[in-house]
């Protein structure tokens, strides 16, 4: 049997639900795993289409100047700098379109990017580049690859285990993605240098949700941490606390 909310997921992601329905849908997605997964799939597709199709075909400079001449006011000849200027303007638009790939305007942020990364990792046949349960193997692997270092906690007396790590790129910057397991769930912990793109998230520890995922984010000594998983909020918080206590 399909959930009655299922048909509204498209309109929800398109930002087309009434305010009341939008709120109700956000709430529903926190409790209905089926709809949350469907929404995640639809969102993935929407983002991928935007990425694959926008700016796919670009007018040639000759064509651009042909159109420019056709619409220019008759009594004015084109200044010689215009074509170059017009090209620069196109480049800016293309970049803007390229960056505008995240879908719901209200959620245009790095957390959406991070959620996508986490999901892609789970989908990947080789989720990590360095496979090890030993923090003393994983930590040095990042040295020389990242312009910063970070510490990993001792997990022996916890429910968590380390699976491995990989490089991650978010908002055009490199960082570390560490994959942990807890019972049947996997948790990603991302570490980046704190910068403008993350500032909106605030420095103090903060819990939030993005679709079916629980998130915990904070800054520490110039580094931005984001922990994300479909595991319970309590598990996510527990791992976050372990990471904060690492030395």
């Amino acid at each position: 049997m399909t959930c009655e909310w299922r048909d509204k997921i498209g309109a929800y992601l398109d930002n087309e639900l009434s305010e009341a329905d939008d709120l109700a849908m956000s709430r529903h997605l926190r409790t209905c795993q089926d709809c949350a997964m469907a929404a995640l799939g639809s969102r993935k597709l929407k983002v991928s289409i935007k990425r694959a199709a926008s700016g796919r075909f670009v007018p040639s400079p000759e064509f651009r100047s042909r159109i420019g001449k056709a619409v220019a006011p008759r009594s004015r000849s084109l200044p010689s700098w215009l074509p170059g200027f017009a090209l620069a303007a196109t480049a800016i638009i293309v970049v803007a379109v390229g960056l505008g790939l995240l879908l719901r305007p209200r959620q245009h942020d790095v957390l959406v990017e991070i959620t996508d990364l986490h999901v892609s990792t789970l989908a990947s046949a080789n989720p990590v580049d360095v496979i090890s349960t030993d923090r003393h193997t994983v930590k040095p692997w990042f040295q020389g690859k990242l312009p910063f270092t970070f510490d990993l906690p001792e997990l022996q007396n916890s429910e968590f285990h380390l699976i491995g790590g990989r490089m991650a790129y978010v908002a055009q910057g490199p960082g570390a993605q560490l994959l942990f397991g807890v019972r049947k769930h996997q948790i990603s912990a991302f570490v980046f240098q704190e910068r403008e793109s993350f500032a909106r998230l605030g420095a103090a520890p903060k819990t939030s949700q993005n679709l079916a995922f629980n998130l915990e984010t904070w800054t520490d000594r110039g580094l931005r941490y984001v922990v994300i998983s479909d595991a319970s909020a309590a598990d996510v918080l527990a791992l976050a606390k372990l990471l904060r206590s690492a030395e």
Partner: peptide, 24 residues
């Protein structure tokens, strides 16, 4: 002339997306 200037200013920024759409 004012008309044409307004049109140019409004229409030229749409060239790249319109062309992409047309090609698709």
């Amino acid at each position: 002339r004012g008309n044409a200037e307004t049109f140019e200013a409004l229409a030229m920024p749409l060239l790249a997306p319109l062309y992409n759409f047309a090609h698709w």
